[in-house]
Design a protein around this nucleic acid. Structure first.
Lengths: 152, 152
DNA sequence: CAGTATCCCTCAAGATACTG
DNA sequence: CAGTATCTTGAGGGATACTG
């Protein structure tokens, strides 16, 4: 995107998040990382993307604090890329995208991968917004207030 | 993106979702739509994006079944763009991105917009994954099973 | 194996002018 | 006001060759 607008001074957290992970590959790399993937070649094979682009995305994800590099566990001289706590907190984002895709982007009966709770062996239930009293929040039950001072 | 890989035959719902909304603008348009925005010029002013791009994104969001057009409520000859039920079900995605951004992309004390429960007047609590028995799912408590036949 | 370095091309995005 | 049309730029992406 040329002459691209700078949005890391946007006051909206959604806009800043999209600026970091709102591209074709970043969230798929994160998805694979949640799936236990750590090595350059594994990501490359899984995603089928050009190596230079993968290299660039991994670097940016490390710069953004989403991944960190570690020496390879098998003693080779190379890196492993693992999620930081900040990266792990993208879990709801990836799950929400997964569930939305499952519901709306597959034909009836079409096969797709699915997220399973290891303990129960069952698919994880739909992600919904619960308020602190347990009520389920719908979109029209919320509103955005501008420019609240953050605690983080 | 040139010679871009086709991923609408990917078996992973995350990949398909990213293919639909994984760009710089789509989710911000959806965010504004959640905020009650309906008119072309309102989106344009809010997002500060080029009109031809906005036009293109609105068309694609309509094609994807996320927005639908309606005659303008004020009687003018133009369109309004409103979320379909499928579009509204992107709510968890937008909220998850919002909350991740709030936590990780702002300096302490820096001001940002915030999502409020209209009824209680308080910020909506963090989005977490609850299993059907109420336990909180962490990333390492889940795994992906490939190619389950879908019910949708 | 794990990248980096090049080369090339396409298209997303911006700017601007135009139209009913 | 709500777009469409046209032009330009450059980032995103692919392919491939190269390196330790």
């Amino acid at each position: 995107m040329s002459r691209r607008k700078l949005i890391n001074d946007e006051p909206c957290p959604v806009a800043r998040s999209v600026d970091v992970v709102g591209d074709r590959w970043s969230l798929l790399i994160v998805r694979d990382a949640f799936d236990g993937m750590r090595r350059f070649s594994d990501f490359q094979r899984s995603l089928g993307m050009a190596r230079n682009i993968l290299s660039d995305r991994l670097r940016k994800l490390v710069e953004a604090g989403i991944l960190e590099t570690k020496p390879a566990s098998d003693g080779t001289a190379y890196q492993e890329y693992v999620l930081t706590p900040q990266g792990e907190s993208l879990f709801p984002v990836v799950v929400a995208l997964r569930q939305w895709g499952e519901q709306h982007l597959f034909n009836p009966g079409e096969r797709h991968s699915v997220l399973i709770n290891k303990r129960t062996g069952k698919a994880v239930p739909p992600l919904v917004l619960h308020d602190s009293d347990g009520t389920t929040l719908q979109p029209d039950m919320t509103e955005v207030r501008k420019l609240i001072s953050g605690s983080t």
